[in-house]
Write a protein that binds this DNA or RNA. Structure first.
Length: 120
DNA sequence: CCGATGACATTTG
DNA sequence: TCAAATGCCATCG
């Protein structure tokens, strides 16, 4: 086969592996019981204007990923469970297991569980 | 190359 | 508070 990098970690982007790697790094640092928005992750990754691309990276994640992608929600604090995304209900169920109350509509209190990264 | 779409965010009415 | 419009950047037809 060819000496490619670990493509199993996810598809590559024209933005560069840097973007994907940073996003996965940030998401992997989210502690249990905490929430972070796409814009939050994008900002911490070093790309303040690319929240959509963050979703693109998470979209390419495999089912067996160890990353807590379910802890990443929109800034309004809702999960698109309204028939928009197949994994939405999975995310909602997972968040409930994490200890975060989520309504059937996918709405939740983001600020009540907002993850605050420490910049040591 | 152009237009439409997307696991979003922000502003305006 | 909710709905619509605009911005952002990459992918798809």
């Amino acid at each position: 086969m060819n000496p490619g990098p670990d493509e199993a970690s996810g598809p590559e982007f024209d933005l560069g592996p840097e973007f994907r790697d940073q996003v996965l790094e940030i998401v992997g640092k989210i502690p249990k019981g905490r929430l972070a928005s796409y814009g939050q992750v994008a900002l911490l990754a070093g790309f303040p204007r690319r929240p959509r691309q963050v979703g693109m990276v998470l979209r390419g994640l495999p089912e067996n990923t160890r990353l807590p992608w379910h802890r990443v929600v929109n800034n309004q604090g809702y999960v698109p469970s309204k028939g928009r995304w197949w994994g939405a209900m999975v995310q909602i169920e997972r968040l409930r297991v994490e200890g975060i109350p989520v309504a059937n509509d996918g709405t939740l209190d983001l600020e009540a569980h907002r993850w605050k990264p420490r910049m040591d």
